[in-house]
């Protein structure tokens, strides 16, 4: 099966029901996309399919079709993704970092769809779990990216 991923076209041999996550991690050897639950619960495995966020642990290889897969490894190749990464660093968002590939991908997908999201848009789109409790900084970084300023003075890092 052919897979379009991060600007390349590759031939993959996994079975059609294999979750895209494991095709990416095992067969293609890219480990930026994380395994947290395998059950669409956490979002650590988020990638983009044609620019839209998808959870790769519940995306069978066969349903990717001709869609362009973008993983965290290629996020910085996108100007929107680059801005997200910058702000993620500026706001010192990650802690353990394990959920953060997914968070950055989800943020990038939202901003590609809507460069000026409202607070509600952000809340609606940023639903990935973080066990380390980086939620406040994620919303601060998002508000900053959306041009809505940061939450309250002195509360970001």
């Amino acid at each position: 099966m052919k897979l379009k991923i991060n600007g390349h076209s590759v031939e993959v041999t996994s079975d059609p029901d294999t979750p895209l996550l494991w095709v990416i991690r095992d067969e293609l050897g890219m480990t930026g996309t994380k395994f947290g639950c395998g059950l669409a619960q956490c979002g650590a495995c988020s990638v983009m399919l044609d620019g839209k966020v998808a959870r790769s642990c519940v995306t069978p290889l066969s349903s990717v079709g001709a869609a362009e897969v973008t993983t965290i490894e290629a996020v910085e190749a996108d100007p929107v993704g680059q801005r997200v990464v910058e702000k993620w660093i500026a706001h010192q968002v990650p802690q353990c970092g394990y959920c953060q590939s997914g968070q950055v991908v989800a943020a990038t997908a939202l901003l590609k769809e809507n460069p000026k999201p409202s607070r509600d848009d952000i809340a609606a789109a940023m639903v990935n779990l973080c066990r380390c409790g980086t939620y406040n900084r994620i919303s601060d970084a998002m508000l900053d990216l959306a041009g809505l300023g940061t939450a309250k003075d002195g509360e970001t890092l």
Binding site: V58, P60, S62, D120, A124, A125
Partner: peptide, 29 residues
């Protein structure tokens, strides 16, 4: 869309809990 789903009852839950598998267009995989 993220802009709309907070105001339609059930839409945000669908998007956050269901859509990753059943897809936003409801067509499944």
């Amino acid at each position: 869309t993220p802009a709309q789903r907070m105001s339609v009852p059930g839409a945000q839950i669908f998007a956050a809990k269901c859509s990753f598998c059943h897809k936003l267009d409801g067509k499944g995989q």
